[in-house]
């Protein structure tokens, strides 16, 4: 479980997140909406543990431990993983090497890469000259290898062409165990209950909602989490009335 309590975060000297409360239970996937500059990426980076995002109040707990002051790699080891929107390129580090670094020994990189149609990129330097869609697939591949319990997605559909959006949507759905089908004597409800993966997805366009079922949606506006509801409902509202209405509603 991820529990964020009354979190306040500063970047440089500016307060960018205020009084954030958020709870993601095992098996739940949340969608984070919000206009540009509202602090969505900052929230993800803070959960991941990027040191430039300074927590000045409140705390973050994961799996029952206070991780507010834990390093990024500690958090990764505890099972937090992130798919970046614009990850840095690393010259000389091949994608296949990166996947091996992410994963546990004994996994089959080729096989994993086939799932996201990425085998032909394995010998390329990671993120060097990748298109938007290629970056997204590379990030998913890394997460597949890393196999975390809490997955943070920063706009996984941005820059992705229509052909690949299905692939990306379905892969995320699979990673978050949203795809599971009842087998034998299990009911759908039981299967859903057996999910353990947690997800937090930032989306701008909402396209991802067509592929990934989510339990809850939230709107982040000007550093404040404003609305909690069914994600599809929220998305409809935003499309009709824009973000201002969400805030007015929350206040």
């Amino acid at each position: 479980m991820l529990i964020i309590e009354d979190l306040q975060v500063k970047l440089a000297d500016k307060v960018i997140l205020k009084h954030i409360d958020l709870e993601i239970r095992p098996g739940e996937t949340h969608i984070l909406f919000g206009p540009n500059g509202s602090g969505k990426t900052s929230l993800l980076m803070t959960i991941m543990g990027y040191p430039q995002y300074r927590v000045t109040a409140g705390k973050i707990c994961f799996k029952g431990e206070d991780i507010t002051n834990r390093s990024i790699n500690d958090r990764a080891a505890m099972g937090i993983g992130m798919s970046y929107q614009r990850p840095p390129s690393i010259h000389g580090l091949k994608t296949s090497q990166m996947i091996r670094l992410c994963g546990k020994n004994g996994m089959n990189v080729e096989e994993l890469a086939e799932k996201v149609n990425f085998t032909s990129f394995l010998e390329r330097d990671i993120n060097v000259g990748f298109s938007g869609g290629e970056i997204k697939r590379s990030e998913l591949l890394q997460l597949m290898a890393q196999d975390p319990d809490l997955l943070l997605f920063d706009e996984p559909e941005s820059g992705v062409d229509l052909e690949n959006i299905v692939l990306i949507g379905n892969t995320i759905s699979e990673l978050l165990q949203r795809h599971m089908k009842p087998t034998g004597d299990q009911t759908v409800k039981e299967v859903n209950k057996s999910r353990t993966r947690m997800g937090l997805i930032i989306t701008h366009t909402g396209f991802i909602l067509d592929y990934v079922s989510a339990d809850r949606g939230q709107v982040l506006y000007d550093g404040i989490l404003a609305c909690k509801a069914n994600p599809v409902e929220i998305f409809k509202q935003i499309k009709q009335q824009g973000y201002e209405e969400c805030v007015r509603c929350a206040n």
Binding site: I72, N73, G92
Partner: peptide, 19 residues
């Protein structure tokens, strides 16, 4: 970036230098 994939700071630096 590499630390968020589970590498320690030293391992991350070594990986970048090797690259």
């Amino acid at each position: 970036y590499l630390m968020s994939r589970g590498l320690t700071e030293e391992e991350a630096a070594a990986t970048i230098v090797r690259g």
